[in-house]
Computed example of a mutant assay.
Amino acid sequence: MTDAITKAMRERLERLRAEQEANSDYTERMKAFLRDRAARYDRRPITRREWDEAVGDTPEEFGFIR
């Protein structure tokens, strides 16, 4: 009975270690994916003028400037 319990505990430990290693790899892959995506986009804050131009709320749109 002791041998069976010891064997079962070793197998469980092996599964846990394999799972932990797989999760670690997944975490690193996700971090790399996010770094790659973040580098593709301009993430700086935009000015009020840039925002207004993007949505069409410029003074010219409202007829304030001709």
Rank of each mutant, 00 (worst) to 15 (best):
M1S: 13
T2A: 05
T2C: 00
A4I: 12
I5E: 09
I5W: 04
T6Q: 12
K7R: 12
K7W: 03
K7D: 11
M9F: 03
R10C: 00
E11F: 05
R12C: 03
R12S: 03
L13K: 14
L13P: 00
E14K: 13
R15S: 04
R17T: 14
R17Q: 13
Q20A: 15
E21V: 07
E21D: 13
E21L: 08
E21P: 02
A22C: 04
A22V: 09
N23P: 04
S24I: 07
S24Y: 05
S24E: 13
D25V: 15
T27Y: 04
T27Q: 03
E28R: 14
R29T: 09
R29H: 11
M30V: 14
M30L: 14
A32H: 07
L34P: 02
R35Y: 11
R35G: 03
R35E: 14
R37Y: 12
A39Q: 09
R40Y: 06
Y41F: 15
Y41I: 05
R43C: 01
R44Q: 02
P45H: 01
I46A: 02
T47V: 04
T47D: 01
T47K: 04
R48Q: 11
R49Y: 02
E50V: 00
W51I: 08
D52L: 12
D52F: 13
E53S: 08
A54V: 03
G56F: 04
D57P: 00
T58A: 02
E60F: 13
E61R: 11
E61M: 06
F62A: 13
F62P: 03
G63F: 10
G63P: 06
I65F: 12
R66P: 03
